[in-house]
Design a protein around this nucleic acid. Sequence first.
RNA 1: GCCGGGAUGGUGGAAUAGGUAGACACGCAAGACUUAAAAUCUUGUGGCCAAAUCGGCCGUGCGGGUUCGAUUCCCGCUCCUGGUACCA
Length: 924
Amino acid sequence: MAEYNFREIEQKWQGKWSAQGTFKAEVDPSKPKFYSLDMFPYPSGAGLHVGHPLGYIASDIVSRFKLLKGFNVLHPMGYDSFGLPAEQYAIQTGQHPAITTAQNIQRYTEQLKNIGFAFDWDREVRTSDPSYYKWTQWIFMQLFSSYYDLDADKALPISSLEARFEKEGNLAIKAVCDEGTPSFSKEEWNAFSETQKQKLLLHYRLTFLAETTVNWCPALGTVLSNDEVKDGFSERGGHPVERKKMMQWSMRITAYADRLLKGLDELHWSEPIKEMQRNWIGKSIGAEVVFEVKGSKEKIQVFTTRVDTIYGVTYLALAPESELAETLLSEEERKKAGAYIQQAKNRSERERMSDVKTISGAFTGSYAINPFTGEEIPIWIADYVLAGYGTGAVMAVPAHDERDYNFAKHFGLEIRQVIEGSMEHGSFPGKGGTLIHSGMITGMKMKEAMAKCISYLEERGIGRGKVQYRMRDAIFTRQRYWGEPLPVYFKEGLPYLIDEKDLPLVLPEVDKYLPTEDGAPPLGRAKDWTYTTATGTYPLELSTMPGWAGSSWYFFRYTDPSNHQSLAEKSKTDYWGAVDLYIGGSEHATGHLLYSRFWTKFLYDIGAVRIDEPFQKMINQGMIQGRSNFVYRIKGSNTFVSLGLKDNYDTSAMHVDVNIVHNDQLNLEKFKAWRPDLANAEFILEDGKYYCGAEVEKMSKSKYNVVNPDDIIERYGADTLRLYEMFLGPLEQFKPWNTNGIDGVFKFLKKLWNLFHDADGKFKVSEEVPSKDELKALHKAIKKLEEDMANYSFNTSVSSFMICVNELTALGCNKRQILEPLAVLVSPYAPHIAEELWELLGHSTSITKASFPEFKEEYLVESSFEYPIMINGKLRAKVNLSLSLDAGAIEKAALADAQVQKWLEGKAPKKVIIVPGKIVNLVV
RNA sequence: GCCGGGAUGGUGGAAUAGGUAGACACGCAAGACUUAAAAUCUUGUGGCCAAAUCGGCCGUGCGGGUUCGAUUCCCGCUCCUGGUACCA
């Protein structure tokens, strides 16, 4: 083989890896384990573009590096294969989503295999496969059969809760349950009917059916969770979303809010992502206060984080949706305020969001009593109070809260200052200030006053300290076809689990993937979608699970992907443990990453797994943006002007396929062949070339800027693609894809190849002992690579390979003792060429079984150093000196230099700074 | 509004316990090889002045500060970008 023939080499080794099972991972307690995971893709119809593999390449490099370091590496890949696009396509074409999904998966797999990943393909999972979703359904059943016990601070079986109800009722039980769960004694419980008992238990189950306000997307015909809605539109498809009350399954993720928050501290994730989760969970510590209503039995509960400002309360505000609002309307105000309530309720969520500046509200005509002062304060209805947070009512302190201030100003309500400070610029929070005009807490600071207020409230039974979370329970059902069926049937309108032996509950066939005529989900079209027990035949749940169900536990399944007895064998999940490195996009910060942590903690509680955090270390790769190219057509003609000359003509810009542009120069022949109307295009060139304009945009078909990895591989090979994706810049950074520099890494691989070959292209290495310089070049690269690996800085490693190969080429080095470790060094990045060279060197086993070369500091030790001599902080001269010299000798030598003398003009320096081995600075 | 991340040559980027800014690569220019082109190789390449030189000045988004010395630390801004938004 004369030349570097990447096509032949890459095919050969991909075949060998597959045939020899090179990347098969098995439990081996004698070795340390390393679990390297990529966020698995949704297999879309468009196939893989050049942005997808970025993270996979990085994790592949780490995986291969860990193999060389003696780790037992688990590096799997699979598909998140339930999802909306396949179903939308099914609606349009009638094609079963399972068919299109299988086709897409096949294409993805082929594309991924072309890149030469060290995946153990035998472990592939697909969330839409019944053998997989059997266990997603199983987890759902465990959640249904559990409640969260606050004393144990973990999930416990619902049966144990029932047992306690029988003995003591629910009065003394500390467990997470719905707001407004009724209290009952043991006598009452035991007297309840089965139906009544089941209804009550739903208030406690970790997944439960309840009427909730949901994000309803009419265009998609389904509800969406909060993280699937962006600015009032669906994340997928961008359809409008409205608020609606519906019977839905939810996951009681709020039970885990505090553990999800605390767990973050131990994780090696980037600070921004952790911060996003903290904000999403939104813990606030405050107090609940009960206000009596004058002349009424009603009481108003408010949640506040600033009880210390209670003496500054001048009105209460209720959310328009609150039921209390309506009951409290006085006769005089009923007409006006009632109209306001109607109007506020009808405003869509999006209107309310986009229009936060308009202040609106109405007086109820009722008054509440401040429990601290006995003072009467007006009760208002206000748009800015959200029904869904806290109690849907706030105690307004206009002097120290901006929204209350604006509202009070607008309606001319009293503003009463209770913290020292100036009201010149409106309200101020005054968290560090001293309280004034505040009765028993006057003179105190915030913290002390809050504690005092809370104990006052608790003593009188009119309030308590309370922790409030912003996070809501997660809606768990979608009115769609292409998802996991819920293993639930209904008897007398109440949900029951099917028998575990009947899992998986397989998705039924339907004639159309649309809702039924009476608006039921697509599963309503299935024949016999029922479940038969000893007592009769009952209807099954018609909704399916959301996209995040299957992806919330897939990392466990990889450890034992074909297990039929359990979601994975305990010994295997125990051995592989948590993911050591997780790479994926940051867009999953509040969705997938939170749900996965929740399910892992739950599985930990019920003893199914031994870890309670799934992802120890995570890196979020930056998105690859598109880089579009433009040509400029003279208006009304078929003549195109090169970029530099376009301003001389009246032109309009037109997107041109980036695949027929190289280094921003248009390939004229390919351009003419691109579209029939361009066949006779004419050009106005610069220096005989046509230069295109460029712009960074989203990668999309319509902008002709999609680059497919297959095309790059066809032209340069997978090793070049891998190196180039890394060379592009830091993994975490967002960057446009542009192929401008790819020739550089391709040339590098050729130079690497040439080191092992003579001028005639014959393989030739020498057995001679390497020189000092050769060893130095190699060991510099070893050192850099290890450092970079610790920082996940892949781009700089590629540079150091280039430097090493450039130096060795200059030295004419072809010595085995240098080239052999070099091949191992580059093998994680460019595995195919490394394997080929390794084989040529005479090895019969894969290079992945080699050991990473040991770094030896001794080869890098220098005896002299070229000192930069600075005069007043500016570099003026360089002097080569022995590193053994002390500061005095260095100074002497520096001052003796002719250049230095010239700058000193005979004067002695005022100050001399000498950092041995670094720098000399003279101040004149 | 609030909370993150960022800004370095024509381009992608490198260098932070403060110590030679621009590694490596692309592009560009000149040259070699070639009938020619491609490929390959060699040399140069931050800007300005000087001008084949010796050199000098400026320069890491902007304005200040600390320091012998700042891309790096501090203060105040500008712009881009991600998240979040009446969350009491």
